[in-house]
Write a protein that binds this DNA or RNA. Sequence first.
DNA 1: TGTGACATGTAATATGTTACATGATTGA
DNA 2: TCAATCATGTAACATATTACATGTCACA
Lengths: 186, 186
Amino acid sequence: MPERTTTRSATGRLSELEGAVLGLLWRAGPMTAHAVRQIFHDSPTSHFSGSAGAIYPLIRRLHDTSLIAKSPDAAGAKGGAAYTITPKGRSALKAWMQPHDPAWLTTVMFDPLRTRMLTIGILTPRQRATFLEHAERELGAAAQQQAVELLEANTDEWTAAALQGALAVTRARLRWIRSLRRDRSN
Amino acid sequence: MPERTTTRSATGRLSELEGAVLGLLWRAGPMTAHAVRQIFHDSPTSHFSGSAGAIYPLIRRLHDTSLIAKSPDAAGAKGGAAYTITPKGRSALKAWMQPHDPAWLTTVMFDPLRTRMLTIGILTPRQRATFLEHAERELGAAAQQQAVELLEANTDEWTAAALQGALAVTRARLRWIRSLRRDRSN
DNA sequence: TGTGACATGTAATATGTTACATGATTGA
DNA sequence: TCAATCATGTAACATATTACATGTCACA
């Protein structure tokens, strides 16, 4: 982790979370730090929890380096400071879109289900069957939910494209588990 | 980074990296800490780099809590200590296989390509086209490589199952990018 | 008047990354 | 002998998590 998922802010390049937050302010700003937290918290992805200890220092970092600024005309529902992306922030965001190593965008990503598949042999056949059954059920529910989300989402085309990508991956994982269960039951 | 991908070792439950390392020792042990590093380093997944600062303290933690032990009969090529999983380690590994929250195994995982798709609108149409073209090429190469790996791999069925899962996801991402490019070019 | 949402932040903790440092062993 | 590999580790740093702490505002 970290890992390669976070690059040093010290290198001048944005980390994944920094890029995600800055991108959110670009397409949905201005908004308060609190609103950013809510969006990460409510998001179906489990990678970032949107914890206070992550978001507030991060917003401060972006503000201190002038990638974002307090909006003069906008504010939160209860007067919190709303932030906007600055021209400098837009430049940084464009640079973040194009990493030095283009291949890492497409390498095999972390998948806790796949990681566990390597070790599933430690379970009894009965436990294995239950594990796979649960996985199929959960993936099916997730796919269902993401499909609904995609239909109901009233967003720009690129957000829709991202949702389509998430759904495509979830469905691929579901088909993968289904084929494993089918092969095993023969 | 970290995130929900690492759970506290203090809770008694293994983190993702701890589970991955312990699982590796279970199916391919005994081996030295150095060998564990090599395997993570050579692995196509970019999530954990297998850095010394991660692996050595982790191995020490597993050893201090008796989840692994120094093998009396095995050693590395140059006399390094080889570790084996203990019965206590096998129990911990089984518990790690079944997280308290079964849904998080199947939630939408981190994907830097998808994260950037949300913000691709900041690029010029020309830059967008190049971005997608690069993504398709890299994903195609990754899929090719993973397919070869799967054919050449001389492993147990569960490792093969994991490789199949990785390939299925990569192909789904490739199809996703292809369909986006097709839609855009019309 | 109190509950819930808005709002901001810090402290303790965990743990990963990079970079550095050291040394043994094997084979060309 | 010299390079590569095996082998182990630490220090400085970044940064995410949880838990805690504080306060405001709208509304029932």
